[in-house]
């Protein structure tokens, strides 16, 4: 969508870097225009009228002036500040993961309101969700669907035969499940249990309100996480910084294993 000389949109802050003397360069995912980069002048000064409205993960109503090289944010008003995500290191890490994935899976100036709503809803849910791993898997599957990487979980990607209720293989290269008989079609395909297939299908097709009541055991969670990270890393051809960080946190898990802290491992 081409932008007027001044324009407005609700946006989520994906990244921010210091720029010039007191400015911040923001990577935003806007509801109306998709991902854009804009500068918030003076945002590093405490007296700035924008500072508190354009922190990471915040959802804000923004007004822009189109610049020659870069758009400038002229007004900012927070819609959701997600204070709960800032007060909990684990939730903050998952929020980082949500925006990092969004950043990696989108290009500038390609708008998609469904993606925007997915991310906004996911950040909302992150503030209270009990099972953050489940929410992360739900978000991954939905984002993959909206960006054209929906994994095929109902038919064999080699033979198009329906998937039966038995252990399968997951091929990142072919983008979905391989029946055991077709395993040699992709030698790097990883095994996946029948239960994991069931859960992934459920996550792919049911709304969060239903998914959130699932209770999964830790080994199953580990299984799902490793399959999804395998697939995402294959598509993105790189590791995700927030995932590395999550693994580091887990190594110190005993430190964070207090009753008030949500499950991370």
């Amino acid at each position: 969508m081409s932008r007027e000389r001044t324009f407005r949109s609700e946006a989520i802050v994906l990244r921010r870097t210091d720029f010039g003397e007191a400015d911040r360069l923001l990577t935003l995912y806007t509801r109306e225009f998709g991902k854009i980069t804009a500068v918030a002048k003076g945002a590093r000064k405490p007296q700035s009228r924008k500072t508190g409205h354009v922190e990471l993960f915040m959802r804000s109503k923004l007004f822009f002036a189109k610049g020659r090289d870069i758009d400038v944010i002229t007004q900012a008003e927070m819609v959701a500040g997600y204070a709960a995500l800032r007060a909990d290191l684990v939730r903050a890490t998952y929020a980082s993961y949500v925006v990092e994935l969004l950043d990696r899976f989108t290009v500038e100036d390609d708008h998609n309101i469904s993606i925007y709503d997915l991310v906004a809803n996911t950040l909302d849910a992150l503030t209270t969700a009990e099972d953050l791993l489940l929410l992360a898997r739900f978000y991954e599957l939905r984002l993959l669907g909206l960006t054209g990487f929906r994994p095929q979980l109902f038919q064999c990607v080699a033979s198009s035969e329906p998937i039966l209720e038995e252990d399968q293989f997951f091929s990142a290269e072919l983008g979905g499940l391989l029946r055991p008989a077709y395993q040699e079609q992709d030698r790097r395909a990883v095994p996946i249990t029948a239960v994991s297939v069931k859960v992934l299908r459920y996550l792919q097709t049911r709304p969060w309100e239903m998914v959130s009541s699932l209770r999964l055991k830790r080994p199953l969670h580990r299984d799902l996480e490793s399959i999804m990270h395998h697939y995402l890393t294959y598509i993105l051809e790189r590791n995700l910084k927030s995932v590395d960080f999550l693994y580091r946190l887990r190594r110190e898990a005993e430190l964070f294993a207090s009753p008030d802290s949500p499950m991370i491992s």
């Binding site: 980082s96 990092e100 960080f245 999550l246």
Partner: peptide, 11 residues
């Protein structure tokens, strides 16, 4: 500072 986004950890 610790940054999950930039992958900066306590170490």
């Amino acid at each position: 500072a610790i940054s999950p986004v930039e992958g900066v950890g306590p170490e």
